[in-house]
Amino acid sequence: MRVAYWPGCVSRGFTPELHGSMELVAPLLDIELIELDRANCCGAGVIAEHNQELVDTLNARTFAMAQRVAGSAGMMNICSTCQGAQSECQQRLDADDDYRRLINQHLRPEGLEYKRGDDWTNKNLLWLLVEEIGLEKLRERVVRPLEGLRVAPFYGCYIVRPTGRLGYGEFPDRDRYLEWVIDAVGATPVEYAGSHKCCGFPVITMNKATSLRQAGRHLADAIDADADCLVTPCPLCHLNLDLQQPDAAKFVERPLDIPVLHFPQMIGLALGLEPKELGMGKHVVRTRDVERKVAALAAV
């Protein structure tokens, strides 16, 4: 399956292991990535806060580039925040013909146009994997079932709310796909209070206490539920849950030491890739215990 691939800024910035692991995992799932290397930032909600016409134009530009990728099934992203920010713009662009025309005028000098199409989609890898590739196929490809690994899902707000905008009418189970995938790769999904809550990242520069109390609380809840690690399809969540974890521990006044995997990393482990090539050495919270469990599985 060929997809127009939008990795987002953070997966090529402060979480390079995410983009790297996606590139390794894609061929194992028969996904051909055509990277949109001329596309711009999605705005992450911040440009939307500043000027709606601007953010809608910037994302229409990305969509238009994706629509030009010949033979592609649609656009794929690997970031919950990109998904949410782009879905918000797409909803407005699709809702009103006059508005779409207005936005497309800004793209004309570049020879681009976003066309509303009922079968053109922009999907996070999580959605694409469950809805297009299918869990059966994933199960078939698993060479190292992650048996015994207890994984706490962490979705990221932007792909769970608001449901009206995010395709939950057609796909009502999108808020449990992570559990399904965790199960499909042989691991055990852990239920805990924070799975669909906010990591706090959007306010890390504005109110550190509000931000890191959220991250810390969810990490603590996952630890209390006996999770070995968390997994998230959002690199911004990863920054708050992993990079900031030592600081988050101070805000919740208890030790925290739980690794956080990127979604493609977890899949990669099950598909036989090694932790090192998946960039797990770049995490702030050491992934040793997860690696040890995975290594033990290989030995069996």
């Binding site: 909600g45 949410g84 707000c157 932007y158 709310r161 608001p162 449901t163 809550k197 906010c198 706090g200 959007p202 306010v203 504005m206 109110n207 509000t210 931000s211 959220q214």
Partner: peptide, 16 residues
């Protein structure tokens, strides 16, 4: 206000 407009974590829970 430190608990004002910039204390919203942009989680969409209220919209939902």
């Amino acid at each position: 206000d430190p608990h004002g407009i910039y204390d919203c974590t942009h989680c969409f829970a209220c919209i939902e």
